[in-house]
Nucleic acid binder design. Structure first.
Lengths: 321, 321
DNA sequence: TTGTATGCGTTATCAA
DNA sequence: TTGATAACGCATACAA
């Protein structure tokens, strides 16, 4: 252990209260006294013990982020944005990978919310908010991001892709495609459901109904989309629609093996993929903005636990390249 | 605030000492009593307040990981492995993105090492260990991972790629390639330097010297390799060597635009890219193992701050597909 | 302008 | 086998 507040007080010839107030600016101190304290602090390389401070004040200056899959660039981009946002106010970000497991999410939730972090941003693998509510102290600051849960009563930052999906389908139909293959993500996620619904509605609004046999969903987080993709191409699809970046990236190796009569629409989840997706049509998600908004919102929530929950909606944009 | 140890004690009809001992296994407790305590813990969703525990024990059960670039899958893979490893012993991982900035690294270092984490794993953007040593309390547990620093006196987990690079160059030369283009990462990193040296040596051991005009290094972390790659192809290269996965991924969009008379060797930094790199020859890094070893080592170092520093070396493997 | 004393929620040392 | 209680290092209400 290093120096403690009592050591500083002794060296400066003042009480520990004065040391504390000098360091926190929490009460006027005579300039000369303050000077002596600061010198003692410097001489002893004193830094306040953050556990003691947290225990006393209840404030950790730390936000947790529960991520379903850290090896997905979508979340890496979001992490970066959140961290940048909260760092502005002196907060640290603690990232924990929940591996798309509701089980692990709950266990991590429980261990973080009691004394480690002041608030939690969660991209949840659960489906109902009540599944996590039991494990949280009442009014614990929570911001849900990207994925919506049923019976949610927490703040939410979400991206709406309905319009962008409509435009992309409209584009493909105008280009005359009749067999459009389609691969979405995990069926139980709100994002998947919303994109799927938007996709169907877009066809219906054109007076069509899509060939359901050309629509696939990935059963598991680690499912390989390659066989699905090959199947769709074999079936004679002339266009492919990918419901997220990762699926598209993983499928690229297949696409190279075939001649290219087809057009591709894919979600662009992270600017990292912009170059890789050159020549495709992309639905760009405002991933960084989502992270920034989530970071901003969790700090607001920590500061004001009692104001009503907010929903913040952002929008994806379709680019036909 | 949630339930406290006094609440549990009251509900179970025992003293707080007994609750503590049941939870920590630090003293024999009658089975029936222990059972009652556990039930109360469960009923109240009690979790010990970690600030209080840390204050008392001096142990935070938290490891920090300073990552230069969280949107690089290489590091995402490592994060996952570290977290998995230390979770076995009840430790949490706190990830902070240093954005390839030595400046930011030092500032984060300073704020984390005094009371927030028990130890730090660092993939450093600095070049000399003494640059960070000044900001650390004496004997603070540090494990350097992936990147070696000059004058290092901390534990180190590093991957050696010399043999794999030799084999890959040998392979390309045997296949008769005479113009081999080459793109490496940031010049100041030990990994880049080692790979570059190994590349040159491999040619020399074949009695050749590589055409230096076909070797490129990325000047900055956010540099776009695409123009470099195009240039190399224009110059008539029949084979390309990528010094890391990300550079290769970013260059893929170019490669599609040219007919394919060339062969590609690339580092495979993360299993995520395995499919994408199908048909290429890869130098596979043991990224997950590096993370696991780093996690294991930091816990050893925290437990035994006084044993001499260790160097742990792993090896990349070349696969000609 | 400064000092004293209490308590934050644990762990661990005594006693019983 | 269990309970009472003293720290851990700090912030802060209350005194002076």
């Amino acid at each position: 252990m290093g120096a403690k507040i009592t050591d500083v007080a002794a060296l400066a010839g003042v009480s520990i209260a004065t040391v504390s107030h000098v360091l926190n600016g929490s009460r006027p101190v005579r300039e000369e006294t303050a000077e002596r304290v600061l010198q003692a602090v410097h001489a002893l390389h004193y830094t306040p013990n953050s556990s003691a401070r947290s225990l006393k004040t209840g404030n950790k200056r730390m936000v947790g982020f529960l991520v379903p899959d850290i090896s997905n660039l979508f979340f890496a981009t979001m992490i970066d944005a959140i961290e940048r946002e909260i760092a502005k106010r002196g907060y640290h970000l603690m990232v924990v990978n929940t591996c798309e497991s509701g089980e692990k999410e709950r266990s991590v939730l429980q261990s973080l919310c009691t004394g480690i972090v002041d608030g939690l941003i969660i991209a949840s693998s659960l489906s109902d908010y009540r599944e996590m509510e039991d494990y949280l102290p009442p009014k614990f600051p929570i911001v849900l991001v990207d994925r919506r849960l049923e019976n949610n009563s927490a703040d939410l930052v979400e991206t709406v892709s309905y319009r962008a999906i409509y435009e992309s389908v409209d584009y493909l139909l105008r280009r005359g495609h009749e067999k459009i293959g389609c691969i979405f993500g995990l069926p139980h996620l709100s994002t998947t459901q919303n994109r799927y619904d938007a996709y169907l509605r877009a066809f219906r609004e054109h007076g069509l109904s899509p060939d359901e046999s050309l629509i696939r969903k990935l059963p598991r987080a680690d499912s390989n989309p390659v066989p699905l993709c090959e199947e769709l191409i074999e079936k004679g699809c002339t266009a492919l629609f990918f419901g997220n970046s990762r699926t598209c990236v993983q499928s690229l190796c297949v696409l190279r093996h075939y001649p290219e009569p087809y057009e591709i629409v894919t979600f662009l989840d992270s600017p990292e993929y912009r170059e890789l997706f050159q020549g495709m049509h992309v639905i760009e998600q405002p991933t960084g903005s989502m992270g920034a908004m989530a970071g901003e919102q969790i700090l607001k929530r920590i500061a004001h636990p009692d104001v009503p929950a907010r929903e913040i909606l952002l929008h994806s944009v379709f680019h036909d390249n």
